[in-house]
Amino acid sequence: MRPARRGWSQPAAKSDVDDVHDVRREPLPSYRKTLQADYGAELETADFAGGGAEAAERMNRWVDRHTEGMIPQIVDSNEPLDPETLAVLLNTVYFKGGWQDEFDPARTEQAAFAMDGGERLDVAMMQRGGSYPHLRTERFEAVRLPYGLKGGYRLLLVLPARGLGVDDLLPDLERYEEWQDELQAKAGSVALPRFKAAVRSVLNEPLRQLGMRQAFAPGADFGGMLEGSPDLQLSLVLQQVVLEVNEKGTEAAAATLMAEGGAAPPSDPFEFRADRPFFLAIEDGVSGAWLFLGRIGRPADGA
């Protein structure tokens, strides 16, 4: 964070968290206690003066370590930090899940993926059969693929009906709690591109649109963080996400800087083929929470 007009921060989540404070300001004892007791956060001091190249390198090493090397860098050590920076909060989320039933690499073949706009891309299309929770409506087709022996986590895939795009499904996705129980175990086949996706996003404006405006404006109250109650406000919320899906499973990582089983198979098996842009979400099988979610519009092979 920086005083007055500017600052960097990010709300901590229940995952790996690091709080880096400038040597010019000490965190309040109550804030330090909350970070360590409630979030298990690491708390460090750094000197952001003169561009903070050393601090940037330390932050990058921390993110690289806590995402198992999937995100080696969150800040560019060649671009100096604002000398007025007072605090940087880092948060990482890492997920690695092997399929309950792996895709057989021998069945992976080159196939066409129709991107928005009509362009076609050759992709490595993985294929497998089985019994999976599935739903088809006039607007979309959805299927869940479980991870691990117990299926505690799963990959939700939602494919728009032909003539519709992923953006057209936003109202349907917002009503997911209403239709998710309609996913019924059926026999069928799934064809899914092998891909690795990496996205780097500045979240300032999306957060403002969601109602988080005061934190980016003069007068934001972060007085409970640092001694001296400095006048702070957020200037940058940056997130980087890497997601890799292959025959063995899924590996995903995110770093943010604010600086089933069951029923007898039906007679009519389904065929789910993700050969055009689709929505995906890695979800917790107990709470139903989406850990990672996104739109795959141009698969890039991660193999």
Rank of each mutant, 00 (worst) to 15 (best):
P3I: 12
G7T: 08
Q10G: 13
A12R: 14
V20H: 11
V23N: 02
E26K: 15
Y31G: 01
L35H: 02
G40E: 02
A41I: 08
E44Y: 09
A46T: 03
F48Y: 04
F48H: 06
G51Y: 14
G52W: 08
A53P: 04
A55S: 07
E57F: 03
W62K: 02
D64A: 15
R65W: 06
E68V: 12
P72I: 08
I74D: 04
I74E: 00
V75M: 03
S77A: 03
E79T: 07
L81H: 07
P83A: 14
E84G: 10
L86W: 09
V88C: 07
L89T: 13
N91C: 09
F95H: 00
G98D: 13
P105E: 05
E109Y: 01
A111Y: 04
F113L: 10
A114L: 12
E119V: 13
M126L: 01
S131C: 12
E138C: 13
E138M: 15
E141A: 15
A142F: 01
V143S: 03
V143Q: 00
L145T: 05
Y147T: 03
Y147L: 12
L149Y: 15
K150W: 11
K150C: 10
L156W: 01
G163K: 08
G165S: 06
D167L: 03
D172C: 12
R175W: 10
A187P: 03
P193H: 03
P193S: 02
R194Q: 05
F195G: 02
A197W: 10
S201C: 05
V202Y: 04
L203Y: 02
G211F: 14
R213Y: 06
R213N: 03
R213L: 10
A217Y: 06
A220C: 08
A220D: 06
M225N: 05
P230F: 05
P230R: 00
Q233R: 15
L234W: 10
L238H: 08
E247A: 11
K248I: 12
G249A: 07
E251Y: 05
T256N: 11
L257Q: 01
G261C: 15
G261A: 15
A264H: 07
P266G: 11
D268G: 14
F270L: 11
E271Y: 11
E271A: 15
R273H: 01
F278H: 05
I282P: 00
I282R: 05
I282T: 00
E283D: 13
W290S: 05
W290V: 11
F292G: 00
F292N: 02
L293H: 09
G297L: 14
R298P: 03
A300P: 00
A303P: 01
